[in-house]
């Protein structure tokens, strides 16, 4: 890891914190708020790759644990990790890794469709695979019930995956960081 990688990791952790500033969007019909912050994991993985992306999210989660109010709505501190939805926050690290790994694999064929598929897989499928059993375990409900409870958030998360993939593909065009680094 070079100094430049450390700076990318640190600044991306700061971007995830800045995403908390987006006002939440209310989905009509379902009536759940969608916050921009969970796009942070998708963007970090899709722009920085598996290793740097997951480290950026790990750094962000560490700063939240240390007590900085960096989550949307100004939440932060150790208490966040004892709530029923803590699995999703910890899951961001894994989601960033998976999205980063797949983005690296498909780098030369990366377009809006592959990027969206990768973001939906890592940022929705993998994330829920961690968040849902976690809430089920700590809230003493079954996995099916926990999934039913989280289902209203899925459309919003898919929408965010599509937005994130648009950003990833555009950033790739103007500022590619992955791909064949030995040629650079």
């Amino acid at each position: 890891m070079e100094t430049r990688d450390i700076v990318y990791i640190a600044l991306f952790a700061a971007i995830v914190a800045a995403l908390a500033l987006f006002p939440p969007i209310w989905l009509p019909v379902i009536g759940v708020p969608i916050t921009a912050q969970s796009m942070g994991a998708m963007l970090a993985g899709g722009v920085l790759g598996a290793k740097r992306g997951s480290l950026a999210l790990a750094l962000f989660v560490l700063l939240v644990a240390l007590g900085l109010p960096l989550l949307s709505g100004g939440r932060g501190g150790f208490g966040v990790f004892f709530g029923p939805t803590a699995g999703y926050i910890v899951g961001w690290i894994v989601a960033a890794f998976v999205i980063g790994y797949l983005t690296e694999r498909f780098w030369n064929r990366l377009n809006i469709f592959t990027a969206a598929a990768i973001c939906i897989f890592g940022g929705v499928v993998v994330l829920y695979a961690i968040g849902v059993p976690w809430s089920a375990a700590v809230a003493k409900v079954s996995v099916t019930q926990a999934l039913t409870g989280s289902a209203p958030f899925i459309p919003g998360d898919i929408l965010k995956a599509i937005i994130a993939s648009l950003v990833i593909v555009t950033v790739k065009r103007s500022y590619p960081l992955l791909g064949n680094r030995s040629a650079a």
Partner: peptide, 20 residues
Amino acid sequence: IVALLVPLVVRTLKDADDIA
């Protein structure tokens, strides 16, 4: 949101190079 995020990310990456 895309028009907000792309410049934010690209600007940050350029800053990161300078800082490094």
